[in-house]
Design a protein around this nucleic acid. Sequence first.
DNA 1: AATCGCTCGCTTTTT
DNA 2: GCGAGCGATT
Length: 693
Amino acid sequence: MSAPCAEPATGEDRLATLNPAQRQAATAGVADGRHPPLLIIAGAGTGKTSTLAHRVAVLLEHGVRPEALMLLTFSRRAADEMKRRVARLLAAPTGSAERGLQLPWSGTFHGVGAQLLREYAGCVGIDPGFTIHDREDSADLMNLLRHEHGLSARQRRFPQKATCLGIYSSVINTCRPLGEVLQHSFPWCREWETELRRLFLAYVEAKQAQQVLDYDDLLLYWVRMLEAPALVTEIGTRFSHVLVDEYQDTNRLQAGILRALKPDGRGLTVVGDDAQSIYAFRGATVRNILDFAGQFEPAAERVALERNYRSTAPILAAANAVISLAGEAFEKSLWTERDGGRLPALISVRDEADQAGCVVEQVLARREAGMRLKSQAVLFRAAHHSARLEIELGRRNIPFVKYGGLRFLEAAHVKDVLAVLRWSHNLRDRVAGFRAIQLLAGIGPRSAATILDNLAASPAGPSLLREQPVPAHTGNNWRAFAELVDTCRSDYTAWPAAFDRLCDWYLPLLDRLYPEPAMRAADIRQLAALAATYPDARRFLTEMTLDPPEATSAEAGPGPLDEDYLILSTIHSAKGQEWAAVTLLNAVDGCLPSDLATGSAEAIDEERRLLYVAMTRARNELDLMLPQRFYVTHQAGLGDRHVYAGRTRFIPNRLLKHFDQQSWPPAAHAAAQHPDPRRAAVDLAASMRDMWR
DNA sequence: AATCGCTCGCTTTTT
DNA sequence: GCGAGCGATT
């Protein structure tokens, strides 16, 4: 974020570069040793990261040890950025830059939780070698139990695995009872409350038997651990200061952790912007930040950062107008001195194909004008919204990197390899084992289950693996597989080497398993390169599930790291970032708000904030695309609701003065097409058909 | 017991 | 346009 720039060396001078509110936020209660609970309301582009980095630097200068500082950010990328800035701030005038600055307790809630739990595992009765299940693994385990409990083959359909997990996760993260969650968020599953409760108990037992924690456990075990008086004293004093970024996106469970760590709020700082709260779907509640100040006695100090250094005045005015139509919010109005610049544009195009064409044309024009591709971003509500554009970019040879959506890690072949690795390090992990074993030709769910049962029943180690009964024709393959697992788990096999062995074993299987084996093989090689950068298998696995590589690249092979490339990103993944030019795709009702999210007033407000987040990513140029016509492929019953899409409801007519309305292709071009009367007839016919699609 | 192929139902955002 | 699930086939 573009805060005031130069950073002189001495503490006093350095702080002079901050504006008064930022300075207040960076220093409040430090010098006098009060360390009161502090709430920093930081609007978009107000130099939040810089301010927080300054506060960390100030704390360190006042003698707080780095290892006594817990810094909770939304992603590890944000944590790294913070570390970098603090290190730069602390670079002494003599030039002895503190390169080695360590903030060992910085990262996401989940990451820090995992780290703490490994350390204190002994005190809370869990195995320090636990493995962590990502969402898909958790859903698979849920599915296994769902079948075991005979819940899958009922007259009336029982909720799907993902729904079951969603309900479970919601209960944990919102700290509300099952009945209430069902009533409020999953009303169509209410009739299954008893069965769900049974299923969730089985799920918890299974995780414990397998030494597996899921994402929610990392928080839940953490908060429960703090209920033990001895541990809360130990851990509470160990961390004298806890700073939390993006506080508006925390949930009740996370707020509970903070309350347990710092009951009186001393040493606790939270930073956030209620207008940018966009994670309610995973349990975040904007109440956390709205109610923060009042939960302490005396109340928390409050500082608001309102000067925006990022966007031009017209962009900021439009964004402010959009968010002003929301419900409850902190009083806050962003202002900027970046006068000039054009109005944000609302660009009407015929359909998604034209939208792709228009975006490509504009991107290229801006690059011609000297703006690097990397300074331009295309944002969208849902990952698949960019499909057309991706094809067009590919056709025109424009490199791009996409953030959000289907991840590298979710690809089946990547999951396969990781399952083998995970299983070899924790043979009790049934989900991993189930997947790994079935990679062998001739072994299906039945044999896999038998093998896993045998292993679970016998306490002995992996030597048993080799002797498992498998179908005769798989004999040799099985032996090779058992050896591979031994190799992977052995302490005598050096780290990246073990992974290479695994890849050598796996790659030949691709031909049989999947279409497009060549592309998948390339992914596996990329994974191997990544694995080599971690010190050992455990670290690799943990970081891969908690902090997966977040971007996927269109280019196969080595990523276009030092080249120039366009950024495509979901709005969610764009959080905290900024670009000189931003284009938002599909600014139409049905996409934004997503028609899946129009159930409640809160859900709609969250979609509004999503639009606000997208708009405030832009420094100089902002375009919102409005495809007029949508080919909605699966639309049961309700006919043409989205065939002709309207402008998003978040920009009603009275806000149009903040935008410049355009259409593409430009008029001259369009006129050339128009005289043909047959064209209209074709459109009409298509729309008649679309009504029933 | 594994696997192929068909149909039905659903389709967001992510640690 | 995709996966989960089911029934027929090897």
